[in-house]
C-alpha cells in the first residue's frame, strides 16, 4: 500500500541521496517524491509516497528518523492530513470538442493555462484519485500528455518538533561529558 511520509530535512549536501538511498537499499519502492525549501532556507520539506507492506510502515519511518540530517519524519498515511498533487495535462482536441473539454475541466476545478487551435494545457490539483479520474476522462477527448508533481502533504496535527540540544565538544581528554544528560533531555518520554 502507499504510505505518505513527511520529512523535515536539513539542507545539507547528500541529504536527498541518503533518503532515496535508504529506501532503495531496503527495497521500498518510491512512488513519488517532492522537495522544496521551507520558511527557514536551511531546511527542506519532503513528501514521499512509498509503496510498502503495511507491516513495515513503522520501520520505514524509524529508519528515516535515524538519518542525521532528518529533523523529523512522520507517517501521514492514517493521521489527519491533507495530501495534494498537481497535474499539468496537454490535450490535443478537435475544435468541436473544445467546449466539452472546458466543461469537464470546470467540473474538476482545472484551469486553462494555455490554449491553441491544437488544444489546451490544463492545470488541476487534488488528491491522487481525483487526478487519476481527470486524466482518464481527458483521454477520451484526444491525445494527452501528462506531468504530475507527486504528492505534497501536510499534517493537521500540531506535532512538536523535538530537536537535540548541543553537546560539548571534547577538550583534550574529556570525552563527551554531559552527552547522556543531553540525550536524556531529548527523549523526554517521546519514545518508550
Amino acid at each position: 500500500m502507499i504510505q505518505i511520509i513527511s520529512l523535515l530535512v536539513e539542507n545539507k549536501p547528500g541529504a536527498l541521496m541518503r533518503i532515496t538511498g535508504l529506501l532503495t537499499a531496503r527495497n521500498y519502492n518510491i512512488e513519488s517524491l517532492t522537495v522544496a525549501r521551507t520558511l527557514d532556507p536551511d531546511l527542506s520539506r519532503m513528501s514521499i509516497a512509498v509503496d510498502v507492506d503495511p507491516k513495515l510502515r513503522q520501520q520505514v519511518v524509524k529508519q528515516m528518523n535515524k538519518l542525521v540530517n532528518v529533523l523529523q519524519a512522520s507517517d501521514l498515511t492514517d493521521g489527519p492530513a491533507v495530501a495534494r498533487e498537481l497535474v499539468l495535462l496537454r490535450v490535443r482536441t478537435a475544435i468541436e470538442n473544445r467546449t466539452a473539454v472546458l466543461k469537464e475541466a470546470e467540473i474538476f476545478g482545472a484551469r486553462v493555462v494555455d490554449s491553441s487551435t491544437e488544444g489546451f494545457v490544463l492545470e488541476a490539483t487534488g488528491d491522487a484519485e481525483k487526478l487519476d479520474t481527470f486524466v482518464d476522462l481527458m483521454r477520451a477527448y484526444g491525445e494527452i500528455e501528462v506531468t504530475r508533481s507527486g504528492v505534497v502533504a501536510v499534517t493537521l496535527e500540531n506535532k512538536k518538533l523535538r530537536l537535540s540540544p548541543p553537546v560539548p565538544a571534547p577538550s583534550s581528554g574529556v570525552v563527551y561529558e554531559g552527552e547522556e544528560e543531553a540525550a536524556a533531555a531529548a527523549v523526554d518520554g517521546v519514545l518508550r
Binding site: 536539513e10 535515524k66 537535540s164 548541543p166 565538544a169 540525550a183 531529548a186
Partner: peptide, 11 residues
C-alpha cells in the same frame, strides 16, 4: 559545541 539537531540518542 557539537550541534546535530536531527541526531537523536535515546539513553
Amino acid at each position: 559545541e557539537i550541534h546535530l539537531p536531527g541526531y537523536k540518542v535515546f539513553s
